[in-house]
Structure formats: C-alpha cells, structure tokens
Design a protein around this nucleic acid. Structure first.
Lengths: 116, 116
DNA sequence: GGGCGTTATGTTCGTTCGTGCATAACGAGG
DNA sequence: CCTCGTTATGCACGAACGAACATAACGCCC
C-alpha cells in the first residue's frame, strides 16, 4: 500500500441555510460525552470555552429536544452529559459519514489522483 | 409526498488541512463551464470577481494540471474554459456527492427527524 | 465555610474573510 | 482607432469570527 496523502471527505448536514451538524459539532458532542464537561471538551479541541458553549447552545436550540444536558458546579458537582437524543444524533452522524465515505471512494479517488 | 424541509448534505474533500474541492468550488467550475467566463460565473453566484479569481487560482495550483484555462480580452475575445481535467474533476465530484447522498439517506433521515 | 472546577454571560480585541473600488493589459469587432 | 468586456492585481474598508479576559452563580468535597 502506497503512502496515502493525508486526505479526508467530510459531511455537513444543513437545514435551511444553516449547519445542523458537521465534523466540528460532532467531535464536540463526542468529547462532551467522553469527558462529561463542555470545558474539558473545549480544551481537548483547543477551542475557547465561549465558542464550545455557543455551539452547544445552538444545537440544543436547533433540535426538538436538547442534545446536551448541563448542570452548574465544579469538582464532580456539575458538568455536561449527552441526552439520549444527543447520543442518537451523534451515532447517526457517524453512520452517515461512514456510509457516505465508503460509497464515494471511487469518484473521490478519481479526484485525489489528480491532486498535486 | 410531504413538503420536505429545505435540507441538504454536502461533501468536502480535503487534502492536508485545506479544502481541495467542495460545493462552492464545484458550482464555480460548473458556471465557468456554462458561461465561458469567470466574471459572469462570479456574478451568477453573487460573489466578487476577486474571490472567484482567487478560487480558480487556488484550484489551478492545487491540482497537477490546471482545471481552468484563461485568456484575456473581452467582447468574445477572451474568457475562461474548463480543461479536460477540469471537466473530469467536476464530474467526479458530482458523482461523489450523488453516491454519498444516496448512501447516507437513512442515517441522515434519522437526524432530520430530530430537527426542529 | 472555603476551595475548586464548572456553567453562564458580557466585553474587548485581533485576525481573517470577502467585498468594493481602482487600475492596467489584453483582444476581438465594428 | 475606439469601445466593450474580459483577465489580472493592488488596496482599503467593513463584517464576521473566534480568542482572551473578566465576572458571577452554582454545587460538591474536604
């Protein structure tokens, strides 16, 4: 197998004109689920807490039922967890990206071959 | 058939950290092919000629062989055309998006159902 | 009660992105 | 030769974005 150029295909799902979910939001959800904290997830992605918080806000507003549940308080007190809806959306997005990626490998390869 | 919420899935192909081709660049290529002019394509997309020109520049540099061929001069004189490579890449991208879209409909639907 | 780490929110600042405007060279056609 | 519409390029301005900082309230744990 030849050394592959670092390439990737990524999926974004829009509703109206705005992004419903894409790679960034998905990774954030994943990390919130893993770490149990928006702040820690933000640090892991090297993004400001402000922005991570805004993304969560936006997603919670965008979906019928919130994807992330938050409670204030530190040191084991508060934090953030994925709701069942959050887990479902995250999993569905991962599925979608996986299916899309495998289905498009042939044409994508035709493009990659032409890249420098 | 129920009135569908205006939704879309879109594909972006990255090389290294940068976008090789995505919806915007693809549409630009398409319009250049149709109109025979970067300027007119830009107007059709309601984007500045400056930006369209920069995108073409970037794509031509990114691929082994240029996607768009340009010649100066107006009034039927100059203009821009897709090279064979340009047509090939555009077609491959359309294929990729189509395949990706059909393959991911099921999980995507699971997400859309949860959207407000 | 004090400390720690979290959510929540405002404000400021720098950078990035894209547009708009100006200019130049070019090329066909009347 | 002159006009028109294009490619090509610089520059300045504004908008949008995201980071960084500053607080505040909250909740567990020692």
């Amino acid at each position: 197998m030849k050394k592959p150029a670092k390439s990737a295909v990524r999926l974004r799902i829009y509703l109206g004109g705005e992004v419903a979910i894409g790679p960034g939001r998905a990774e954030l959800l994943q990390l919130i689920g893993d770490t149990g904290s928006i702040a820690e997830a933000a640090r892991a992605m090297e993004m400001s807490y402000r922005r991570a918080w805004a993304l969560v806000q936006s997603m919670n507003a965008l979906f019928k039922s919130p994807l992330v549940e938050r409670t204030a308080g530190g040191a084991g007190g508060g934090g953030a967890r994925l709701t069942p809806a959050g887990r479902a959306v995250l999993e569905a997005y991962a599925d979608a990206e996986r299916e899309a990626r495998t289905a498009s490998t042939a044409p994508v390869r035709r493009i990659l071959r032409r890249l420098r």
